[in-house]
C-alpha cells in the first residue's frame, strides 16, 4: 500500500458489505484462490464429464486389461493413465467419478446445513423443551464415530447413492446444528435482536430475517470444511464396497478395484486416490482461506 491513503479505496470500503470485504480478502489470498480454482475445475469435470472424458467409462476391453499409463512401456497416449482390470480407461472413470464425489459432497452438506440451521435456530432461540430434545439427539448422535454410524446404516439400508446421502445426512446435520445453536445463543442477547423483540416482531421473522443473516458466515465456513470430510467418507464407504455400487465409477471403489493389482499394476489404485487427495486438499485449503477471510482473528 502507498503511504498516502487512496480516498476512493476508503469510500469503497465503507459502502462494501462485510461479506463483500471477506470475499475480497479471500480472493486476495492467492493460495486459497488457486485451491478454489481447482475445486471449480473438478466441478466442471463432473458437469461436463460426457464431453471431456476421452472414452466411455464403462466400456470394457480385455485386450487393454491393466494397460500401463502412457509414459510407461506398453502405454498409449489415448489412454493416458492406463486401464483397469477390465480394460476400462482410468482417466475417463476418474472424470465420471468426480460426479459421484461432488454430487454426494454437495447434496449431503447442503441438506445437512438446511436441517442444521432450522433445528439449531429452533434450539437456540426457542430454548425450553425444544432445545432439550434437539440437544439430546445431538449428544446421542455424537456418541457414534462417524464412519461406524454410516457403515451401520449402509449395512441396514443397503448400498446406493440415495442411501449414502441419507446415511451421511442423518449424522452430518449435527455439525451445523451445533454451530448455529451456539451462534444463536450469543446473538439473541444482542441489541438488534432485543430491538426487534421490543417492537413486537414475530418469532419466525426474528429467527430467519434478523438472526440468520448475521450468523450465516460461520455456518458457511464450517459447511465448506465439512464437504471435504463428507467426500472422504463417501470414498471410504465405496472403498469398503457398501457405498456406490459397480459399475458406477466412484473414486473409492476404483481404489478398491486396484487392491487386487498392487503387485503388478500400481496405477489402478494410485490415480483415483490422487484425485480424492487433490479435491479434498483443495477444499481444505480453500475453506481455510475462507475462514481466515471471514474471521481474521483466526489467522495466526
Amino acid at each position: 500500500m502507498t503511504a498516502v491513503p487512496n480516498d476512493a479505496a476508503i469510500v469503497r470500503e465503507r459502502i462494501e458489505s462485510p461479506t463483500g470485504q471477506s470475499l475480497r480478502r479471500f480472493l486476495a489470498d492467492r493460495f486459497s484462490a488457486a485451491a478454489m480454482g481447482i475445486v471449480l475445475l473438478f466441478v466442471l469435470l463432473a458437469v461436463f464429464a460426457p464431453f471431456i472424458a476421452p472414452h466411455d467409462p464403462y466400456e470394457t476391453d480385455l485386450f487393454r486389461r491393466l494397460q500401463p499409463p502412457a509414459w510407461m512401456e506398453g502405454g498409449e497416449w489415448s489412454f493416458v493413465l492406463g486401464c483397469d482390470g477390465l480394460g476400462r480407461d482410468i482417466l475417463s472413470r476418474i472424470i465420471y467419478g468426480a460426479r459421484v464425489s461432488i454430487t454426494i459432497g454437495l447434496a449431503v452438506v447442503m441438506i445437512a446445513t438446511v436441517i442444521g440451521i432450522v433445528l439449531g435456530l429452533a434450539a437456540g432461540y426457542l430454548r425450553g423443551w425444544v432445545d432439550i430434545v434437539i440437544s439430546r439427539i445431538v449428544d446421542i448422535l455424537l456418541g457414534f464415530p462417524y464412519l461406524i454410524f454410516a457403515i451401520a446404516l449402509m449395512a441396514m439400508m443397503g448400498p446406493g447413492l440415495k442411501n449414502i446421502i441419507l446415511a451421511l445426512v442423518l449424522k452430518e446435520w449435527v455439525v451445523p446444528a451445533r454451530v448455529v445453536r451456539g451462534e444463536v445463543l450469543a446473538a439473541r442477547e444482542m441489541e438488534y435482536v432485543e430491538a426487534a423483540r421490543a417492537v413486537g416482531a414475530p418469532r419466525r421473522y426474528i429467527m430467519f430475517r434478523e438472526i440468520l443473516p448475521n450468523i450465516l458466515s460461520p455456518v458457511i465456513v464450517v459447511s465448506t470444511i465439512r464437504m471435504a470430510h463428507v467426500i472422504i467418507l463417501e470414498a471410504s464407504l465405496s472403498f469398503l464396497g457398501i457405498g456406490v455400487q459397480p459399475p458406477t465409477a466412484s473414486w473409492g471403489s476404483m481404489v478398491a478395484d486396484g487392491r487386487a493389482f498392487v503387485l503388478d499394476a500400481w496405477w489402478v489404485s494410485t490415480f483415483p486416490g490422487l484425485a480424492i487427495l487433490a479435491l479434498v486438499l483443495s477444499i481444505n485449503v480453500a475453506s481455510q482461506g475462507l475462514r481466515d477471510a471471514f474471521d481474521p482473528k483466526f489467522s495466526d
Binding site: A228, A235, F239, L240, V255, A256, T270, N284
Partner: peptide
Amino acid sequence: GISLPGFWFGII
C-alpha cells in the same frame, strides 16, 4: 494429513 484418504494412503 487431514486430506489423505486413509484407505488409499495405506495401499500406496
